[in-house]
Design a binder for these strands. Structure first.
Lengths: 230, 230
DNA sequence: TTCTGTACACTCGTATACGAGAATCCACAT
DNA sequence: ATGTGGATTCTCGTATACGAGTGTACAGAA
């Protein structure tokens, strides 16, 4: 496992700490990232003792973090049986992508007319970063940043939060796709189409591109067929 | 406060306990219900010590419960400052209802063609229950049951879960509406229209009715203007 | 050899305990 | 009378400790 931080968790957002970051939240952030980037694969048991020892804290903040992640849907907890990285079968992936398509289409439709030029440029910059980024692990994060930038002007924070949550839930599976260079170039092409339509303020066309983008991703994923329950 | 259960929490679903109900979950259920039915109004501070003593347990399960409720968006937690029942200003209510309209319209559209006749009858039965129910506190629950019954055949469990969560988040504000008999009768009328269109398998019409139903509710709420920050 | 029962080990849920940070209140000075 | 400083108190976050439930492994009997 390559994610142990061990006493060195704080490191992002060190300067502008509005809310004091509790240990539980830091642990949750590290675990979420490790799950998203594939370091922790589906089904991996998450023992409270192990995690506590690994991070160098007690079990209490670990418990809090696990509960938080359970609420986000990326770990499952059974009382007396422990927690494990949530599994997703094909039907669940289909469900997630259906919800994503619904949420993101609406957000995009609302956002396009109000998108500032800076945001568009920012999104374009992220696309270039993706092209230049060799490390697949960071691709998921950049992908999320790009999409959220396009939705950012939708004027509904709750909608954005939902979208981000579902992105996180799906990221570790999407990452499987990204190992394929074919899919990556196809995805980037769609991303640029998306950005262009947004620049032209053509919301309807943008939504069409987005729907195809998500549909292609899901189809590839469902076809690949993720791991089954043991 | 009229919600203290104190050592007598278990009582619903006593027989078929698939997962052992932890104390934390029981506490969460009681708190959620108390918030939804208005016993705990927005802004009420939730002190861990108080709750623990009131319920007769220690602070640990209370902490777990609060974290769970925070994830559901109905309580806010600030580290070192404690938890309180989440406040919602007008814009947030607007956001919630926008999301609800999006989610529930889609669920209804998908569900209508597949709704079994039993479910329709069940929904109709719930409507009669609402008419016969004098206690406003139970109205919110019945309302949720009715709506979810109509969506139940949408074939997307995750979508249903999202809808239920947003119902819970909004329930305590909707409850304010229900104290008005005017709104209650209007709402019931729309409910029956909704059921009728579903019986005719007219998804488009059903969605129109639902949109108006939700739109009216939000408009009334936004106009009423909920409590401000102190 | 196989099946069963018992005992052990493991993990979680919950309780208690301690330290740190924030808020409040009172006293004192201006 | 009012503003400021400090001390007390309150609450939370985290650590440690204990009890209960479950799974497993080993031994003994069929």
């Amino acid at each position: 496992m390559g994610w142990q931080g061990r006493h060195r968790l704080r490191g992002l957002g060190e300067g502008l700490v509005q809310k004091p970051l509790t240990v539980a939240e830091q642990v949750a952030n590290v675990l979420r990232e490790s799950i998203a980037d594939g370091s922790l694969v589906a089904g991996t048991p998450l023992r409270q003792d192990d995690l506590a020892e690994r991070f160098g804290f007690s079990r209490m903040p670990v418990r809090d973090a696990l509960r938080q992640l359970e609420a986000e849907g990326i770990v499952s907890i059974h009382p007396t049986k422990g927690a494990h990285v949530a599994r997703m079968d094909t039907t669940e992936i289909r469900e997630i992508f259906a919800v994503r398509e619904l949420l993101e289409s609406e957000a995009l439709r609302l956002s396009v007319p109000n998108l500032a030029r800076e945001k568009l440029d920012e999104a374009g910059h992220v696309l270039n970063q993706i092209d230049a980024e060799p490390d697949v692990r960071r691709w998921g994060t950049l992908n999320r940043v790009f999409h959220l930038a396009l939705y950012s002007a939708c004027g509904n924070d709750r909608l954005l939060a939902l979208i981000e949550a579902h992105h996180n839930a799906a990221d570790r599976y999407v990452r499987v796709l990204l190992s394929s260079l074919d899919y990556r170039s196809q995805s980037q092409e769609q991303h640029r189409d998306l950005l262009t339509t947004c620049r032209h303020r053509d919301a309807a066309a943008a939504v069409r591109v987005l729907r195809k983008h998500l549909g292609d991703g899901m189809a590839t994923l469902a076809q690949a067929g993720p791991a089954r329950k043991p």
